[in-house]
Write a protein that binds this DNA or RNA. Sequence first.
DNA 1: CGAGACGGCCGAATCGATTCGACATCACGG
DNA 2: CCGTGATGTCGAATCGATTCGGCCGTCTCG
Lengths: 355, 355
Amino acid sequence: MSRQDTGIRRATISDVAREAGVSPSTASVVFSGKTPVSDATRRRVLDAASALGYTGPDPRAASLRRGRSGIVGVVFEEHLGTAFLDPVKTLMMDGLADAVTPLGAGLLLLRDHEPTGSGPSLTTAPLDAAVLIGCSGLLRESLETVKARGIPVVVIEGDAGDDVPRIGLDNREAQRQAASHLRALGHREIAIVTLPARVDWQRGWLHDDTAVTVDVTRERLAGALDVFPDATAYAAAGSFIDEGFAAGREIFADPDRRPTAVIAQSDLLAAGVIRAAEEAGLRVPEDVSVTGFDGIVVDGLAPYELTTLVQPATDKGRAAGAAVAAMLEGIPAASIRFTCTFREGNTTGPAPALA
Amino acid sequence: MSRQDTGIRRATISDVAREAGVSPSTASVVFSGKTPVSDATRRRVLDAASALGYTGPDPRAASLRRGRSGIVGVVFEEHLGTAFLDPVKTLMMDGLADAVTPLGAGLLLLRDHEPTGSGPSLTTAPLDAAVLIGCSGLLRESLETVKARGIPVVVIEGDAGDDVPRIGLDNREAQRQAASHLRALGHREIAIVTLPARVDWQRGWLHDDTAVTVDVTRERLAGALDVFPDATAYAAAGSFIDEGFAAGREIFADPDRRPTAVIAQSDLLAAGVIRAAEEAGLRVPEDVSVTGFDGIVVDGLAPYELTTLVQPATDKGRAAGAAVAAMLEGIPAASIRFTCTFREGNTTGPAPALA
DNA sequence: CGAGACGGCCGAATCGATTCGACATCACGG
DNA sequence: CCGTGATGTCGAATCGATTCGGCCGTCTCG
C-alpha cells in the first residue's frame, strides 16, 4: 500500500541472499565490505542482486541499524533563497560541503523557524549533526532542541554557550584595522554602513548602539567606533548592492555634511556605496574613500578593487565541517576564531584637503 | 558503543511507555496523533517523556517503518557553491523549498558526480524523491541510479526521457520573441552571448553550432538564429556579469564590425555586456541594444532596466515540488512547460542609422 | 433494560539491514 | 597425524518506531 505501487515490492537483501544461496549476513557484507568475502560468493551475490534489480541496501534501514544517517543539517534563520544571495554564505556552504563529503554526509537545508508547521525541523529530520548559521536570538530555540536530541552542533558566527564549538571571526579587530587605515590616511569624517541591526530590520540611521542585536553587526560596528567614536552609522536591511546604494544616497544627500570615507560592513554594501558616490558626482577614492568587508569578488564591480577585510569564508565552512567530523568521532571540537586579512585596493586614498 | 558516549543510551519510546504505564503503541500514537488518545493518557506519556528526556521518535526508525524519510534530494551538476551563484537557481530553490515544506520534507543537496567517492549519492541517501537540475548528459547516469531505486524523479530544464516529468521553458520561442523585437527595431548586425556550450566550457567564439550540448543554451541559440541566421555567437563560461563583460569586450573589440544589438542568454551576461559597451564608449541603447534573459533583478544594474524575457523561476521550483508531491501520492505527474514573458526595458532601441 | 456503537488501549508483527560471536573448513608446520 | 590459525560464512539478536486487528468498557438509543 504505502509502497511504490508497482504491484510488487522491491527486493530486499534477504531476497538477494536467498537467490544467491547465502545468508543475509553474507549478502550484507558483500555490499558493505566490512568483512572479507570470497570472490566466488561476491560474484554470486552481485549477480543475484542485478537479477532481482536490487540496487543496494535501503538507506533507511541501514541508518537505523548504524545509528548514522549521513546527513548534516544546516540551519538558516532566513528564507532559504535569501541565504544564498549572500556570497559569503555561499562560500561557507562550499567549504562545508567539502568538509562533510569525505565523511560520507550530505547537507540538509533547514529553516530555523519553520512557518508552515509541518516542515522538517531539527526535531524530525534524521540528522547526525547540525550546523547553525547566524547569530540572532532565534537560534537559541533551535539550539535547545538539537542539544536535547543529543546531536553534535557547531555554530558559525554566533554565540551558543560554551559547550558548543563556535566558528567565528575577529570582526572587531579586523574592522578596527580598516578604520585605522582610514585614520592614517587622514580621514576624520566617517560614516558607517552596517549590516542589519536586528532581524527584520528596516534600513535607517542607527542612533542607539544598543539597538543592535546581531552579533556580527555589533562587533564590526564596535571595531569602527573604537577608532572613530563619533562616526555616524546607517544600518542597511541586508547585504546587497542595492542596500548599499540606498544607504549611500542617504549618506551623500547633504553636501555640507559629507563624510570623506565610508566604512561598509560588507563588500556588497561597499559596492552600492561606491555607486551612490558616483551618482552624487563624487570620485572614489579622490573625493571619498570606501572600505568593504568580506573580500569576496563582487560581480561587476570592476575596475574598482575594494579595500577590504578578506575573511576566509570557505575555510569557515570547512572548519565547521571538520568540527562536525570530530564530534562525530567523539572527539570534542574546539571553537575556532579566524582572522581577516586587510587588503588594500583602489577605493581608499588620502583624505581630500579641506574645502 | 557506537552510541553517543554519554554512558547511558537515549530513551526510546518503549522506555517512555513503560514509565508512563502504557503500551508502546499507545505512546507512539501520542506523538504521531494518528489515533485519538484520552487527555489523561496523553498527559501521562508526555510527562514520562520529559522526565526521561525523550524528545520524540527517532526519525531513522520512523522513516524505516513509514517508508518515507521526508527528504527530497536536489541534484546539481556543478560545485554546490557555484550553483547558488546563479540567481535563477536560487529562485528555483526557493520555490522548491516552498513546495516541499507542506509535504513535510526537506531538501538534501547532492552533487551529480561526487568527486571524492565516498560522498552521499543518489544511491546512499534516504530519499523520497529527487529533483535533477540542469541538462547535461552527466545527469543521465544519476538518472539511471535513481530510476533503478524506484524513486520518483523530476527534471528541471533537461530531458530525461518520456517517463520522467520535466519542468521546462519555452526557451526557443521566447528568445525568438526578443530577436524579433530587435529586428522590428531595425537591427541587422547581431551578436549573441550564450551560456556555456558544454560543461567545462572555456569562453570563446562559437563557430560550430553542433558543439553545443547544453540544452538551454542550444534552444535559446536556436531561437535567436531563427530570426538572425547570420548572427555571430560567443559562448561564455558561466552566467556571470564578468563573463558577459569579457564577452562584450571581444564583441566590441573591432570598431568596424560592431553589432548594433547583442542578445545575451542571461540577464547577468547582459549586464556585463552593457558594462563592456560603456567601456567601449558606446551608449545603451543609442549605439547598441542589449537584451537579456531571465527577468531577475540584477543587483547594481540600476538605472538600466533590461529588455528581457521574464521566466517564472520560482514557479518552476514550485512546480517541481508539486510534481514530487503528486508522485509521492502515486499520481503520475505531467511535464510542464512554462512560458516566458517579454519585458521591454530601456536597453533596447532603434538601430542606429548607418555610419 | 439490552444491544449496538464507539472511543481507547494493547499485542504482536513488521520495516530492512547490520553486526558479532560462533562455527566449519582447509592448509600447514611440528 | 594432530593441533593451530586463518578465512569465510552463518544465526540470531537488534536498531526504534509504527500499524492494524482485536478487545473491553461505557455510552446511547430504542
